[in-house]
Structures are given as C-alpha cells and as structure tokens.
Amino acid sequence: MRPFVYRRPGDARTALAELAAEPGAMYLGGGTNLVDLMRLGVLAPRTLVDVTRACSDAIEVRPDGGLWIGAGVRNADLAAHPAVRRRYPMLAQALLSGASGQIRNMATVAGNLLQRTRCAYFQDPSKPCNKARPGTGCPARAGDHRNLAILGYSDFCVATHPSDMAVALTALGAVVHVEGAAGPYTVRMPGLHRLPGDEPERDTVLEPGDLIIAVEIPALPYAACSRYRKVRDRASFAFTVVSVAAAVDKSGGTIRDCRIALGGVAPVPWRAERAEAELRGAPIAEASFRRAADAELTAARPLTENGFKVALVRNVVVRALLDLVGVS
C-alpha cells in the first residue's frame, strides 16, 4: 500500500475542496472495498478523504412514504430500518443478501453503490485489465468468465457490477444526490452506472471529485410487494451469480405496473425495462412472466462459459414474480 495522507472533513463542501486540492485523492467510506483494493495494489490514492463525518448517516421517512438516506448510512442500519423492511422489502433483502454481518456494519450506502467489480483480472495488478489498467486488454473474454456478464458488456470489458443493494435501488428508481464542483445535482438510477463501451475504467457518470451525499427513494407504494432473490454458489457470504429485484402492482387479474432489475448479468445493475414493458397490463400468469423474461433476454449475448445464466435469469425472474403474486 502506498503511503497516503488521511483527512476527515466534517462537511461535504470541505470534502470536495480537499479532494480537489490533492492530486490522486479518493474518498473513503466504510473502506470495505477501497482498503481491499489498495492492499492489492489495484488502487494507490495519495490522499484519503474520509467522508464518514461529512455525509449524513440519517434515514428520513418522507410524508409520501419515500425515503431519504444519508450517504454515510451503514448497510446494516438501512436493512434494519422499519420503513425499509415494511415498504421496500426488496431493498432490505438485497442488503441482507450481501457480504457478511461485519461488512454490512462497515459499508456505507454510497460506498456500496461505487464498489468495483470482483472480476479476478481486475483485482490482480500483475494481469491486464482495461477497467483497472486502461488499454492493457481484457483477458476475461478468453479466460475465466463463468460469473461475468451476458448483457451490456463491450469488447473492452465483460465484468459485472457486484452490488446487491444497487440492483434493488435500480428497480426502485432511486435518485442519487451528488455534490459536484459546480454545485449539487441528482442522478436517477439506473443512470448512475454506465456501460463500459470503450471506457470501462469509468464505472459511473460521476465526475472526479463528485461526492454522493444521499440516496432518495421516491414513494412507490406497491414496492411493499417486492422481493430480491439472489442465486449464489455458496449459501451465504458470496457474490451473486444472478439476482433479481422485482415489485409488482396487481390489479384484478393483471399486472398494472412492475419493476424488475437484475444483478450479476451486466457491468451495471440492470434495469429490465423490456421485461417491465412486456408485463404491464399482462394477465397474471406464468406464461406472461416467461414472456417478460424472454423479452429482456433477447439482448443477451452469453460468453463461452456463462450461457447458463440465460436460463437461470429466466427461471429466477419467473419464480420471483410467481412468488410475488402468490402463485405456487
């Protein structure tokens, strides 16, 4: 690990200023990913600006039922919050599906959104990786990619985004509040994360130095009927193979509205807009759910070793929807 200066400002504007003043500075949240990558030699910031005192760790329930979540809120606290558990069960389940009790106690909401891929090549500085070491190539394409992307990847990068929480927030259309050099602005998910294209080193649309200060979840009453299902090799404490966050608004025998997002399939938390469109107004039936999943998966281009994810996504989407509408 390269030596670094440590600062801990008490407010967001100071944090922004300190970051801007120091070349090679990075924000530090819970540290669960950044410290990990620094020790591996993947990242080598010269200054760490600890923002855990600069960002709110409060959760506010808005009158309309929406939530305002400070960027410094720890994953464990968010998962345990009564409003999250009651109104957005998919979010609580996504958080609780992630990592371990210890890591959830440390990880912050903003840090979780900004965590880096767990692609093995990305994490090994002795190997090429366009995301970590731009221009060096992507060995995953011809190498081990069983758990990498089937959607949205590019010739430059086939990594997946590792966050569970971000999948739920993507389904919920969360609004990310950012403090930027020119002032505050917002980004609505799924717009925060960007597809790799020919610049896989850029995970998000944020500019260097921008600081996430809060995540707002707009009111979505039917999200009380939602679910996050994570498929993984190990029964716990494992990154996702495939996951789905789904919410449905039933009206009589049809789906009035729905939200679906997928994890483990793309370089970003993947909002399944085609599936949602297929499902809106469709009768509540397994065949509808299957058509919706297939609609999303028409764009899938599995790699040599991860074709199983196509069938897996289809099954998991259908099952999650069946569970939500109470059909066994």
Partner: peptide
C-alpha cells in the same frame, strides 16, 4: 477466500 469458496456456516 471470496472467490475460492469453502463452506460457510450457512452451508
């Protein structure tokens, strides 16, 4: 130990 899975308690 994140990539090489050994059984965790839940398994």
């Amino acid at each position: 130990l994140a990539q090489y899975h050994v059984a965790a308690c839940a398994d």
